[in-house]
């Protein structure tokens, strides 16, 4: 997508680590602990999201995976009981720093939820909403953004003649891709997906999976999924969470062929969870 919104100043490059031709970490979490009131949900989580990669976050219910990705865009903090220690940095910058407004973070880090949640507006308005908030008024430019975003979300051909219709008239799978288009319209850097296909039928699921693979060329994506085959199909790296800890994070091929930790093996082979 061409740059239609103001770009942030480019992040400073971190010094190259030794043995690295490796990709830059877009997100880096170090020693992240998180409590809901007195109950600790995350325990010293160290994890990285690399540039233009898909990271799948897997683990049984209640293991902290959704909490984790919602910590990355600070959504989890909407709950006043939440307390966090440790550090989350986005492109080297502490996301909790005063110099990093949360609105800016959320512009750079889009999110797609489990249930498609379009606004009760037209297809066009759903996608144009974000850019409008960012001050874009030019009708032609908005049309351009909407088309590019819908194309980017692989739904343009299905809705191009229905742009003025209410988004609730779309199928579940289409609504979810519309939400992805809405997310793309503000040109994020990272897309967080919280079980984006769990409410979709198998065919729509495969479409969203194909889309994730395409989006990876331009965006860094972290996806929480209960569907292990999905993690195996679409991700480059997989992080396995258990009881609020990261048991193992490695290349997806490694995790699904020869995981290092017995608990990972037991989970992915369906022995528990």
């Amino acid at each position: 997508m061409t740059s239609l919104l103001k770009k942030e100043a480019q992040p400073k490059n971190r010094p190259e680590e030794e043995h690295e031709p490796a990709k830059e970490a877009v997100f880096r979490t170090e020693g992240l602990n998180l409590w809901y009131g007195k109950k600790q949900a995350l325990f010293s989580v160290d994890l990285e999201q690399k540039e233009k990669e898909v990271t799948a976050v897997i683990g049984p219910s209640g293991c902290g995976k959704s909490t984790y990705i919602k910590a990355l865009n600070r959504m989890v903090e909407m709950n006043p009981e939440v307390k966090i220690t440790g550090r989350i940095s986005y492109r080297g910058e502490d996301i909790h720093s005063r110099r990093f407004p949360v609105e800016e973070l959320r512009t750079r880090v889009g999110m797609v939820f489990q249930k498609p949640n379009p606004f009760p507006k037209s297809v066009f308005e759903n996608v144009a909403y974000g850019p409008k908030i960012h001050g874009i008024r030019d009708k032609k430019l908005l049309e351009e953004i909407v088309e590019e975003s819908l194309r980017g979300a692989a739904i343009w051909d299905e809705v191009k003649d229905r742009l003025q219709e209410n988004a609730f008239g779309l199928s579940g799978g289409q609504q979810q891709r519309l939400c992805i288009a809405r997310c793309l319209a503000v040109e994020p850097d990272v897309i967080l997906m919280d079980e984006p296909t769990s409410a979709l039928d198998p065919k729509s699921t495969l479409k969203v999976e194909d889309l994730v693979r395409e989006l990876k060329d331009k965006y860094s994506i972290m996806i929480v999924t209960h569907n292990m085959q999905q993690a195996a199909r679409i991700s480059d790296r997989t992080a396995f969470f258990l009881n609020g800890e990261v048991v193992e994070c490695d290349n997806t091929d490694k995790i699904f062929s020869t995981p290092a930790d017995k608990r990972t093996e037991d989970y992915i082979t369906g022995r528990f969870g």
Binding site: M228, A232, F256, S257, T258, P259, E265, I268, T269
Partner: peptide
């Protein structure tokens, strides 16, 4: 069953 890891081996 779509086995993985040790089961697949």
């Amino acid at each position: 069953q779509q086995p993985v890891a040790g089961d697949l081996r």
